[in-house]
Design a binder for these strands. Structure first.
Lengths: 153, 153
DNA sequence: CCTATTTTGGATAAAAGAGTCTCAATAATG
DNA sequence: CATTATTGAGACTCTTTTATCCAAAATAGG
């Protein structure tokens, strides 16, 4: 699995938040229902994103979480690094510690290129960009149903 | 982790085999010592590669494993798919089942491109190519020490 | 035929990832 | 002040991955 499940859930939730009114605190239960993710598990993941400063939270009635920045200023890489950690995009393909330009493995160069391609994609893609695309084409963020139904009622 | 540890070990072992005389059966213990991988664990991994037809094995004294094809005809992708399975390079970045051109998630297109880049790299790279590079530049296949010391005595 | 060497396969154990549950802390509202 | 809604934090369970161990099968060589 390229991305951990936590990371995948974190991305889905972040997209959901970016698609909602900015500034509004969204209860996690609300998100877990819509996105069909276990409430408690999602809570854990969002706590990480809060700790990393990507989200901010508010307790009590009318509480919830929201993005600290605009969706257009949050790249996918921010979420991936916050959850899966930077090793994901720096590790050696052969698992050798300290593999780098100075002391590489035979696969280092090619692998570094590949990792860079992943990094670049994640770095260039913003939440807002995906939300726009999702809305325009009614793409899904969940197993069944399109983008729209996430925001009904 | 992009590749599982099993997969990483499988790659290292395959490179080791490709670097040795073709046709010769190499005992797994020999490899596990040189590559500093747990013997029993490596055994399990190589059994998978044998089952997938990438290796063949021979029991008893002077037994061991060897590549079924020449190293120049084995691509990294063969090993990765045999161990981590094809899902690795087909799964949706948001974890949605059945995500594809017909019913995509907002990230599908970009993710597919990224996966293709990984796939292409793994597909274009052969064991022999890496072995040649490793030998030429004395690169390492293990934590310490270069390529050469793997094949002393 | 016996012994040593080696893979095979299954059982088991330990560690990490995924998921659940409970209780405390915070805050709004009547 | 009591009630209710919500996040925070920790303990706990389940599953998968990683790792270890052992007995069985195959085979070479004396």
């Amino acid at each position: 699995m390229l991305l951990s499940k936590s990371c995948v859930y974190g991305l889905r939730a972040s997209l959901y938040l970016a698609a909602r009114e900015q500034g509004e605190f969204i209860p996690i239960r609300n998100m877990s229902d819509k996105l069909e993710i276990s409430f408690h598990f999602l809570t854990k993941i969002l706590q990480q994103l809060t700790a990393e400063g990507i989200l901010e939270s508010f307790k009590g009635p009318n509480g919830g979480v929201r993005l600290t920045r605009e969706g257009s200023e949050i790249q996918l890489i921010d979420i991936v690094l916050a959850i899966d950690g930077p090793q994901l995009l720096t590790e050696c393909a052969l698992g050798l510690p300290g593999c780098g330009v100075k002391n590489p493995c035979p696969l280092h160069d090619k692998w570094a290129e590949t990792r860079d391609a992943i990094h670049e994609m994640l770095e260039k893609t913003t939440l807002t960009e995906l939300v726009r695309k999702g809305k325009a084409e009614n793409l899904r963020l969940t197993t069944d149903g399109g983008f729209d139904i996430l925001f009904e009622n």
